[in-house]
Design a protein around this nucleic acid. Structure first.
Lengths: 348, 348
DNA sequence: TTGAAAGCGCTAACAG
DNA sequence: CTGTTAGCGCTTTCAA
């Protein structure tokens, strides 16, 4: 009454378990006839492979571990979706672990994934990870590691990120092309790389278009709705004739939007606005928010592809212990999403 | 140079693998002294358990399979987050599978989860599942199955859902309490149970408050922004003095909101509005949308608890093959979220 | 092309 | 309290 095993099938057909195993795995050394016979019998006996046993023996699980801060964050939910899609198509499944932005959980997660003998790990690093020892350990154990979005170059792992600099440049240039001339920027904490990158993109876009960079038009907030409101108020009070804002995140842009609306300022018209991140709410606010999309699903797909490459390299037995080649880094192009908040003229 | 096993530890200490295994698992029959010694040695030798081997032998993986339409949908991302949190606290990990609303993938998912010997499955059924054979098979294999949100009573599995009727009742009653007197409802396709439940909640709330139910004030849409706009237009054209709308979903409410805004109708004031679902955009639209929250995280937690109970029951060896007791069904209370769109007076 | 034998790393009876 | 033995179900040499 227990599950049928390859032994049962072998017994039924007066053959051996090893032959059954090979037949079921389409091993070339088995004749087409026996394969057919065995597969049919397997079906009849309602056989299902025990993946644990198979994995224990073969050393491969066809499971990859995913470590993200939280599936509750839209961005990560979308990335996971992207990974799972491609993974499935390649015969892999996904073991999910969430760090909740906690270093402690992250360490635990890596540990668990490793114990489960996942074939590889795709991770986005938690904000407050104290150190990277657990990730170094993954590398030491020769388990392919791929990072996305929240990456660390020091780890020497292949990674996929979006080009923040370019996204910011695109956003700013879009405002310029719309005809805005006094473009402000609400930035975030500069010690976080992506915020600094976006600031640079903004500055360079202005310079490239022969526009002046006015420090008074740059605010350093803490990326929240509140901070967006506050920064908008400050910018307005400067009275510099500001006519557009590029905000470092959609939430920041939203705060500014709310403030201007409260003050009865027309958008677009008096002030144009663009955000960053394409949050789920941004199409639905009034005016709908122009923004930069980070292509989360695409990011997940690319991350999985990098994992496959790492596997292939491992299988090929690249023995040189520590390859000197730089790990591959995929930099995705961000996508400009134009909505109402940034257009000068009424949209067609 | 390969991974250390319990054999290595045993050899190191001149003891046996079984003793090491027991010590590491805190088996009561091992003295505190040897436990300490063995654990220290394990640490020194950098030992990590091979969960595959352990699972193969013990028959337990401490992994539960989760089957959802897509982690890209905010609601499911939140549920998964809820499950993972409690699961982790109880020593379980999560194998995630997405059906993408496809029956085919759903079948494949169940198959894979079963092959991986997950200890249980928590699932939300895909929209277009042609039949439920795969879920019946799970039951036949005696693998604990818990359903949430998209459930099927016929399966006889414990489940957790939100009380749609009650949520609709609460939403409608809230509008009544605000002082609205001509309350319309935009519903969805009636063959889908939750939409019909919500309609009933609306109707009953009116009746209980001695208000007339006017069929002209009920629209049957297809739950989309477009359909919300369209229904709003129709309702307005009826000219029945409608002063509030309860919409079956936030997206529908949003569509109506957009239409009224376009028509220059004040909200709240001329028309009050409440939705259902607490979508991520609803706090941020103008006016911010009152709605009914479905408690996704809570739902995940309860689902996992049901799984634990099922495990306990299985362990206790409830032998009566087919227990006649009804499977437990947890019905969560929805939560009323009051925002700007529904209040009569300006909020304090 | 098939089969016999060994063993992946661990746990669980049972005996001592 | 500790050790011996057996085996979970599968894959994989190697020999036939």
């Amino acid at each position: 009454m227990s599950r049928t095993t390859i032994h049962d099938i072998a017994k039924e057909l007066n053959t051996s378990p090893s032959t059954v195993s090979k037949a079921l795995n389409d091993h070339p050394s088995i004749s087409a006839a026996t394969k057919k016979l065995i597969k049919e019998t397997a079906q009849n006996l309602n056989y299902r492979q025990n993946r644990l046993a198979s994995s224990l023996r073969s050393g491969r699980t066809n499971i990859i571990g995913i470590l993200i801060p939280s599936s509750d964050i839209g961005f990560f939910g979308a990335v996971v979706h992207g990974i799972e899609k491609v993974a499935r198509a390649n015969g892999y499944n996904i073991l999910l672990f969430q760090s909740n932005e906690t270093g402690e959980y992250e360490v635990e997660g890596v540990e668990t994934l490793l114990q489960t003998s996942v074939d590889g790990i795709i991770a986005s690093i938690a904000k407050d990870t104290p150190n990277l020892d657990h990730f170094y350990y993954v590398k030491k154990r020769k388990v392919p590691l791929v990072l996305f979005d929240r990456t660390k170059d020091e780890l020497g792992a292949p990674s996929v990120v979006v080009d923040d600099y370019k996204g910011a440049f695109m956003a700013t240039e879009h405002l310029i092309q719309q005809g805005y001339t006094q473009i402000a920027h609400i930035s975030g904490p500069q010690h976080i790389k992506i915020f600094n990158d976006r600031l640079c993109g903004y500055v360079d876009a202005l310079k490239m278009n022969n526009m002046e960079v006015d420090e008074d038009l740059i605010q350093y907030g803490r990326n929240s709705i509140e901070s967006g409101r506050f920064s908008a108020e400050r910018l307005l009070s400067r009275n510099k004739g500001m006519d557009a804002i590029f905000a470092v995140e959609d939430f920041t842009a939203l705060g500014a939007l709310q403030y201007f609306k409260q003050e009865g300022i027309k958008m677009p018209g008096e002030i144009g606005m663009i955000g960053f991140g394409n949050e789920s709410f941004s199409p639905y606010v009034t005016p709908s928010l122009s923004t930069i999309d980070q292509q989360p699903a695409r990011m997940g797909e690319e991350a999985f592809t990098l994992f496959l490459e790492a596997m292939a390299k491992k299988a090929a037995g690249t023995e040189e212990t520590e390859l000197v080649t730089e790990p591959k880094k995929i930099i995705l192009d961000p996508v400009l999403i134009v909505r109402e908040s940034s257009v000068m003229t009424v949209m067609a």
